[in-house]
Design a protein around this nucleic acid. Structure first.
Lengths: 267, 267
DNA sequence: AACAACGGTTCATTATTTGAACCAATCAGG
DNA sequence: CCTGATTGGTTCAAATAATGAACCGTTGTT
């Protein structure tokens, strides 16, 4: 792994849950040498990517990130184009929702929205979504570039007992997502978390990201799942529109097929 | 310069004015080898710090920055604590305003706000403020850690004919800023841009950043400058309060002394 | 068809990164 | 007041990873 990549990887250890990290602590988390980590932090600090809390000497993310994020957002205003739809989705479903974007072979969290309706709800505090273990990831595999499948298979990390173990199992999930227009994960990334996801497309006509609803598994019923899927299509259409894309016909057809039968429940 | 630092430095070439850059173009801008730049971009892309426009193959800032910026802002909510005051300042003065934060020995742009009152106005599209040539920078030198002065003197880059050339000249400007409570630059960074700046303090009691007003030089009169200074104190007090700090007595006294005489204009 | 400009790749040379061991400062407990 | 444990920070020989001139293949222009 290149030195620069290791340096950048340090930034990934800062989260809202753990926003300030000391040198020794970061070494343990990152599993790297202290001298190396120190130099990397110096480099990041010089660039404004981290700074030291002057009191505790702990490191935290720096102000340069705000600058760059602003430029990114003015270049590709995806976040602002997703937030209203996400809020509406959270409101309609009463569950925690989030949007992710695909960049290369990695799916990045872009925005999240928690509905305060339930006192127990899912929280989303991760930066990237594993392709094989999350609904968003399966969405990317089902509707994104086919090269993603091989990338995903290089590391089928078993997060829980439910996580798929073999490429063949993964292919089955991908096929189901393609057929229904939605991806689903039930405890495959985090136990007790059920998640449904729909793809988002951008101006190139390709898969751009996914919008997802994460629920506490015990609360999910078939009718709730059906309602979530309906709201997911609304959110996906909205965000896709804002990103300058269009829903491909085959996805539209899959959604119609998946959602239609419920209109005529069996006697 | 370390490899990682060079890699990070590439990010600095993306601005709102030039948000997408091709490989060859970036090599020219950065003055570096093509193979090296390419590898650096690969590293950045793998980390989500840049991505390629799938159509033009040009590179642009990536989605990971949004993530990290969000964590930074939730850790140290300075931007959101500065924006309302900045908007009020822009509205009151009718000029372009901005806030910068000190991290290490570098002053980073945090937020900017343009007042649409004038069709010709200053724009702020830089990421870091040179300490010796901008009002914000002089503010940092006058009210920040004394170590900054030596850091500033290592590169007294002559941006314009008005830029200070010697440490002695710089010391004089710093002293004036300390005495008046405001820093001023008149064409020392960009010709025809006049700028006034006031310091902001945080919970450690130290200098944390600066709030500034940039105007087209030809429009500035003594009375406008006086009004700007008054509004600057309001903004500085407001932001300092939001950041958990307090205005040191000597700064308060300097402001009072600078602004008082105008209440009793000479006959 | 010739040409230029671009993104991307190769490989021997070279300089940078690396990490075990080492300081100095701080803090808690006896 | 000492002692030991923990922290942030530093050194230097050994080893690894970065470098860039020259090289493809593609695209779009003349």
């Amino acid at each position: 792994m290149s030195s620069a990549a290791n340096t950048l990887a340090l930034l990934g250890h800062f989260t809202t849950a753990r926003p300030e990290i000391g040198l020794t602590q970061l070494c343990r988390i990152a599993g790297r040498d202290k001298a190396t980590t120190y130099r990397h932090l110096q480099t990041l600090e010089a660039a404004g990517f981290v700074e030291q809390n002057p009191i505790t000497k702990q490191y935290r993310l720096g102000p340069a990130l705000l600058q760059l994020a602003q430029i990114r957002e003015s270049t590709v205003p995806r976040k602002s184009g997703a937030e209203p739809a996400l809020a509406a989705l959270a409101d309609a479903t009463g569950e925690t929702c989030h949007v992710s974007v695909l960049s290369g072979t990695t799916l990045f969290a872009l925005a999240a929205c928690e509905a305060p309706r339930h006192s127990i709800r899912a929280i989303i505090d991760i930066r990237t979504f594993p392709l094989h273990a999350t609904a968003s990831g399966l969405c990317a595999l089902a509707f994104g570039p086919t090269a993603l499948r091989d990338a995903a298979c290089t590391d089928l990390h078993p997060f829980t007992a439910q996580t798929v173990r073999t490429p063949a199992e993964l292919d089955a999930l991908i096929q189901t997502a393609r057929d229904t227009g939605f991806a689903r994960s039930d405890g495959s990334f985090e136990a007790e978390i059920h998640s449904m996801s729909a793809p988002i497309f951008d101006q190139t006509g390709g898969f751009a990201g996914a919008v997802s609803v994460a629920s506490v598994a015990s609360r999910v019923t078939p009718s709730l799942e059906h309602a979530i899927c309906q709201h997911l299509t609304i959110a996906s259409r909205d965000i896709t529109h804002n990103w300058g894309g269009a829903i491909p016909q085959h996805v539209d057809a899959a959604w119609a097929k998946t959602l239609a039968p419920a209109l005529e429940p069996a006697p």
